[in-house]
Design a protein around this nucleic acid. Structure first.
Length: 418
DNA sequence: TCTGGGGTCCTAGGACCC
DNA sequence: TCTGGGGTCCTAGGACCC
């Protein structure tokens, strides 16, 4: 049996741990730049606030209904996530961290699942203050469905176990295909057109048809729904194959200098992420674009991909080539809204193939980057950085409602007045 | 004024090999 | 009149996930 443990309204729940006064009140968390609503408390959902809705559409509504909003605080959420996952590992030797707020657990060998899972739920709450829902089933896909049932029906107390075949069929008949894990908008459209409405209908659909229209992924989904497990636990997190740092600016930019600052900063972040997993990149892509939501404005959207002479994770190299890319695509006269740097062709840093005609001293650059990493870890991000990154005053994210990094920064640790 | 960010997997088709 | 067979590797694009 597989269990899927999923934190309810994860970002909002993280914020509430440190703001217990907000319990029972409508709370939302906003995307970067305080743009869209990306997490909602139950109370906020009941008010009719939608996922991914732009917050500025609802400014007055939020105020009138006393909705408390936060900027997203990924430092806090990442740390809370880790605490949750550490707790889950006390209950099963096989835990797969599926996303920041979700994990699969292999429950093989547990005789009495119900009391055991209740204990999991209670312990996570005791250790972290986070409420979770748990779904259990014979396969990951069934555990996913069970989890949704647990979450939707409050009288189940956050736990639902799909026990047998008969119960499975009944649930599949009451589950619409678009709710299935692996069925998105396009597949939903296709299935509806072919009169496949419920998950049960889907399990009765011909394998050849599924394979032809939805690839082997679709066939696997069908088998999983029938209780045949074909998505094994992924116990080690594989190295990333691509890494991106892309952001909308706090305000629109026209000036090349500021865009260059942002691109240099994003390239630096990519190099930091590369070094964290001991990888080097072979290819770097830079893109910039104007505001696609404003049709009245002149639009421009361009990217440039460069192959590096030698795979690297040096900030100096990546910034250098990112800016070469930027220079090829930047055009004056547009109001830019967003830029990004993507590194690709990743490989382990031990395995770099040298280049006879490339003269720069790679070792020296690597040592330099590792040293600045140490300094920055100790004294804070960007204590030592390249001057070309600027200070970000013109383009930094809008984060007007940012909470503290309560669990990762001594200066922001919570204080209690008695 | 204001609309997120970061990934994975699969397939078809082209280029190439012997 | 007639022109093989069997592969691999890479990439772009489309689907999906949170």
């Amino acid at each position: 049996m597989f269990a899927l443990v999923d934190c309810n309204n994860f970002y909002v729940s993280c914020e509430r741990v440190f703001r217990p006064d907000l319990e029972g009140k409508p709370v939302i968390v906003l995307s970067n730049n305080d743009g869209c609503i990306i997490s909602r408390s139950e109370e906020a959902k009941r008010l009719g606030l939608k996922m991914a809705e732009p917050a500025f559409y609802k400014k007055k509504f939020l105020k009138d209904n006393n909705v408390h909003s936060f900027s997203s605080n990924y430092t806090l959420y990442g740390d809370m996530s880790q605490r949750m996952m550490d707790t889950l590992r006390l209950f099963s030797p096989e835990v797969e961290v599926y996303s920041i707020d979700e994990a699969f657990m292999n429950m093989e060998g547990i005789a009495n699942l119900e009391p055991y899972m209740i204990e999991v739920r209670n312990t996570v709450f005791k250790h972290t203050g986070m409420p979770v829902s748990i779904g259990v089933g014979k396969t990951k896909s069934l555990a996913k469905i069970a989890n949704k049932i647990a979450k939707k029906n409050f009288n189940y107390n956050g736990l639902f176990i799909i026990e047998n075949k008969q119960q499975t069929d009944c649930i599949l008949k009451n589950t619409h295909v678009e709710k299935l894990w692996g069925v998105g908008r396009q597949y939903h459209k296709l299935l509806r057109k072919n009169n496949i409405i419920t998950a049960y209908d889907y399990t009765k659909t011909n394998n050849q048809w599924i394979k032809k229209n939805m690839s082997v992924v679709g066939v696997k989904i069908k088998q999983e729904l029938q209780g045949i497990s074909c998505m094994p636990m992924k116990l080690i997190t594989p190295d990333k194959k691509a890494i991106a740092t892309t952001r909308a600016f706090g305000k629109k930019l026209t000036d090349y200098t500021y865009i260059r600052e942002a691109v240099a900063t994003y390239a630096t972040r990519c190099s930091e992420k590369l070094r964290r997993q001991y990888s080097v990149a072979n290819i770097v892509t830079v893109f910039i674009h104007t505001d696609p939501f404003n049709p009245k404005e002149k639009q421009y959207n361009q990217s440039k991909t460069l192959t590096l002479p030698i795979p690297t994770n040096s900030n100096i190299e990546l910034v250098h080539y990112s800016i070469i890319g930027l220079d090829r695509i930047y055009k004056r006269g547009y109001r830019y809204k967003k830029a990004g740097v993507i590194v690709d062709g990743l490989m382990p840093e031990q395995g770099i193939q040298g280049n006879l005609f490339y003269y720069k001293d790679i070792m020296m650059q690597n040592n330099l980057a590792k040293t600045t990493d140490l300094i920055n870890r100790k004294h804070g991000r960007d204590s030592v950085k390249l001057a070309i990154m600027g200070n970000g005053d013109e383009w930094k994210l809008k984060q007007e409602k940012l909470s503290g990094r309560y669990t990762t920064n001594w200066n922001e640790i919570i204080s209690i007045n008695i």
